[in-house]
Design a protein around this nucleic acid. Structure first.
Lengths: 187, 187
DNA sequence: TGTACATCAGTGAACGCGCGTTCACTGATGTAC
DNA sequence: TGTACATCAGTGAACGCGCGTTCACTGATGTAC
């Protein structure tokens, strides 16, 4: 919509630009003025949609939890613990900016109703597929352990600390999950 | 050394102040001018010791890898895989700023000789205690899996995402490690 | 013991910058009649 | 179909701020003789 006064979908454009900047340059490089420039709009415009910078990060976090929830839906419905873990890593790799913001709660309003709601839904899926390990741990402990494991894979990968260990983060996650959780007795 | 022209140990004081600020307010709140103020020194002084801001973060990362190496020494010498993992989490909790900086390599000069050296020593210890899991995975895969697991516990804990799951991060780490790695057949 | 001198560490003024936020405004849109 | 009006979205000038970095300087320290 070149030349027109109204942008059409500025909110979406700003969120996308923010994700791009964070993924490419990190959170430290994020500025509202820069985002406005990228969207081709004056630097005061973002205030209309997000109020302030924290508002934008809050929206990004809420969107992140929603996207993660969607990414987990299929594996969750199928009750597939391993696949849920792999989907978690896939999400982190596909949406590194959302992932980074979501887990930096001091940057946004973690008590925002949108965030709380989306997060609750996602948490339920995160805990839903974990099996019991008879004689070792109940499903809840297994769920937490699985979450920590895939979260570790995702953060170490995104920060570039596993780049010389593996080419494909999903293959790596699978290998790591098997190394940790498979019982020696199993086929 | 109040009133004297020379500080005495400004380098140390600046690193300590940086760790305090990062732990309390996050990386975004870090500024050389603020650190100088905290150390009671003019704002141009830090340049003498670190050159620029990246230099300070590089020093912090190198120190972090050195401290982590020391934290792992005992468990590494004893060949105790679980204890090495717990020491990793203990280090992250005791030195959250160092931990955060170390694993944000875009913030510092990761090819700095000091960093490379300290990191290599630490990596060796990180990989040294992992046992084979017969029929499941070799020691290297187990080491990576263990690293990812404790790294996940540490980052999730530091970001405040496990505060309602456990009181003590070390106890949590132990439980998580057992849930993942213990064989059902074992006593 | 005393003097000269080199070295080092910290000063403080100055530079230029990009930032978040506010606010009176104006252009565009859409609804009521 | 046409006019009046309310609402909304984006403008652009202005504010005040803290920042990193540079640089000629000065105070302090310690070494050589």
């Amino acid at each position: 919509v070149a030349g027109s006064y109204h942008h059409g979908n500025l909110r979406r454009a700003l969120l996308d630009a923010a994700a791009d900047v964070i993924a490419a340059q990190g959170l430290g490089a994020l500025s509202l003025r820069d985002l406005a420039g990228r969207a081709g709009v004056s630097h005061g415009a973002p205030a209309h949609h997000f109020g302030d910078k924290t508002g934008l990060l809050t929206a990004l976090a809420a969107e992140g939890y929603r996207l993660l929830g969607e990414a987990l839906t299929e594996a969750s419905a199928a009750g597939d613990f391993l696949e849920a873990g792999l989907s978690y890593v896939r999400f982190a790799v596909a949406h590194p900016a959302h992932f980074q913001v979501m887990f930096s709660p001091q940057l946004y309003r973690a008590d925002d109703p949108d965030v709380v709601d989306a997060r609750a839904r996602t948490d339920a899926q995160l805990y839903g597929t974990a099996p019991e390990r008879p004689g070792v741990a109940g499903p809840r402990d297994v769920a937490i352990a699985g979450w920590c494991l895939v979260h570790g894979v995702a953060t170490l990968w995104l920060a570039g600390n596993l780049r010389d260990t593996a080419d494909d983060p999903i293959e790596l996650a699978r290998r790591v999950a098997v190394s940790a959780f498979r019982d020696p007795g199993a086929a």
